[in-house]
Amino acid sequence: MAAQSSNARKDQDVWKHLWAMSVPTAVKNFAWRACHEVLPIRVNLKKRKIVEVATCPCYEAAEETLIHAIWACPAAQDVWGSHLSYFHKCSWVVLSFRELFAKGLQFFPREIVELMTVVAQHPDETYRGALKSLEVYRMCKQIEIIRQPSMEQVPHIAAWCPPPQGTVKINYDAALDTQQGYVGVEIVARDHMGISEPCPEIYGASKDYRVHGSSWSCHIQ
């Protein structure tokens, strides 16, 4: 029971750090699918009878399992060792991506684990390309945070300003329905006390117009 409880805590830590990564959502989804071994690598495709052989196309001496394609294949190791000094000649022997991700969390800073996950998603992408995509993503997130309005800000509400005494102020709005061929106008006429006045006479409407208090609509000819 103690071992099961320990494994459960480790899994919770993996999921917690995975979804908290400062990477695009697509990278998080990839990592989650990789941890559950549900990516379309050749071993899985052979099980579904989509391909006949599961041999790795880059290293024919082994089957293309997920951890082989991402980590153990000599071609993948060339990618990891080319620029990622943290992983250069790394001697980790892992059996799954979840184990690889957990080891990264154990030995490396969070930023390196995030970079590792981006490279794992696109093993053919160079280290500089992965680093650049992360920098652009984080820059956009910072701009988004800066642009978000403060919760303490009170929205500005425009107040109605009364006209001088002896005059009437007219406020109006209009909407066009192109499918039905109608235009509608809402008119509010108020004096300096804010008391509504009778709707002004409407000019320019066809004989198919209808007046309802302070609103009218007419058919477009």
Rank of each mutant, 00 (worst) to 15 (best):
P109Y: 05
M116I: 04
I195H: 10
K207C: 02
K47C: 04
K49D: 11
F108H: 13
L100K: 05
G184F: 01
H83A: 08
F97Y: 15
L66K: 12
A120V: 03
D173E: 12
A159W: 08
V119F: 00
D173S: 10
K28H: 12
L176R: 09
E197N: 08
R110E: 05
G104Y: 01
M21S: 14
A120L: 02
H88I: 00
L45I: 03
C56T: 12
W71Y: 09
S196F: 03
V14M: 09
Q221M: 02
E186M: 00
V183M: 09
A61T: 09
V185I: 15
L39Q: 11
K132G: 01
K132R: 15
G184Y: 00
I146Q: 13
C56Q: 10
A31D: 08
S96G: 12
Y86F: 03
E135I: 01
P24N: 08
F30E: 10
A54N: 14
E201R: 03
P162F: 00
V118E: 14
Q148F: 01
I170Q: 07
A76T: 11
K169G: 08
P123R: 14
A61Q: 14
T55W: 12
V27H: 09
N171V: 05
E64M: 04
Q153E: 13
F30T: 09
M193F: 02
D13I: 14
K47A: 04
V185N: 04
L105F: 11
V43Q: 15
Y182F: 02
V93G: 03
Q165D: 09
A159R: 15
C35K: 12
D191M: 05
S5F: 01
H156M: 08
P123S: 05
A72T: 13
I195S: 06
T167M: 08
C140T: 07
P155D: 13
Q179T: 08
T65V: 00
S91L: 11
H83M: 03
Y127I: 01
I187P: 08
W19I: 12
A20D: 09
H83S: 14
T178A: 07
K103S: 08
S22L: 06
F97W: 13
W80D: 13
K169L: 03
M139C: 04
C73Q: 11
L66I: 02
C73Y: 04
Y59H: 15
L115D: 10
K28T: 13
A69Q: 12
S85R: 14
S214M: 09
K103C: 06
W71M: 04
V51K: 13
E144G: 02
E197H: 08
K169C: 01
A54H: 06
I146S: 10
A175Q: 08
L176H: 10
H212A: 02
F108R: 07
K46M: 07
F107I: 07
